[in-house]
């Protein structure tokens, strides 16, 4: 596959774009007792992958396909009812923008950064970063889909002192589904913006609002 190394770099959890401080809903799910071991982590990640993950991956694919990122940012807002999640998505988008402009500089990233200095939704920036790295819609969707499961898995290791081998095995078991979600998202991303998937996970939206008010927490979201 062309650009495989660039995709590995973009999807690497060590890519310095601020993701390490976010649990993508895992902290709230752990506190509520819904995630307490590898099996329940897998259920959480699977649910996230097929809902918020699919939507994010399609937005990333659409940005990589060359759709107007500002229109995609609006499409992301329409798919994100929770103000807390919108704030988080834009914050992470802004942080990813910084890393992307340092690693794969390009005029499209510069234009978007100038148009929205406070950031756009992270999947949109992810897609544009992939485009700037020479990757296509499918690869952008793969990076976004993987981010949607690897983030919570990493957070669960810290939150639950979960065996890291078990958490990584969860991600390995999810790889066929992650690929399938990325494939669907990649195809959708090449179509019209108004036809992008709008799968959502209401519980993630609700718990994100609650989590944002906690006085004591390990993760920013």
């Amino acid at each position: 596959m062309a650009g495989a190394a660039a995709l590995l770099l973009l999807a690497d959890g060590r890519f310095p774009a601020g993701g390490h401080a976010h649990s993508q809903g895992a902290e709230a799910a752990v506190k509520a007792g819904r995630v307490h071991d590898a099996a329940t982590l897998e259920e959480f990640c699977r649910g996230r992958l097929h809902t918020a993950g699919l939507t994010a991956a399609a937005l990333a694919a659409a940005a990589a396909a060359g759709h107007d990122p500002l229109a995609l940012d609006e499409a992301a807002d329409a798919r994100t009812p929770s103000p807390a999640l919108r704030r988080t998505a834009r914050k992470l988008g802004r942080q990813l923008m910084r890393a992307a402009r340092a690693t794969w500089p390009g005029p499209e990233l510069d234009e978007l950064a100038a148009a929205r200095p406070q950031g756009v939704h992270q999947p949109v920036v992810l897609g544009l970063a992939a485009r700037s790295a020479g990757l296509g819609p499918l690869e952008a969707a793969q990076a976004a889909a993987y981010d949607n499961v690897s983030g919570p898995a990493t957070a669960a290791v810290r939150l639950l002192s979960l065996d890291p081998f078990h958490a990584t095995a969860v991600l390995a078991r999810l790889t066929p589904e992650t690929d399938e979600v990325a494939r669907r998202a990649g195809t959708a991303g090449s179509g019209a913006v108004e036809d992008l998937p709008a799968a959502s996970a209401p519980l993630l939206e609700i718990t994100a609002e609650q989590h944002a008010t906690w006085p004591v927490r390990l993760f920013a979201s």
């Binding site: 310095p16 774009a17 601020g18 401080a21 649990s23 942080q95 890393a99 810290r158 390990l218 920013a220």
Partner: peptide, 21 residues
């Protein structure tokens, strides 16, 4: 205030984006 996701050293050394922001 910056939140560090249980890894204070990461936020000042390996991934400094939130602090820069």
């Amino acid at each position: 205030a910056v939140e560090t996701g249980a890894c204070p050293h990461t936020a000042i050394r390996d991934d400094i984006s939130a602090n820069l922001e």
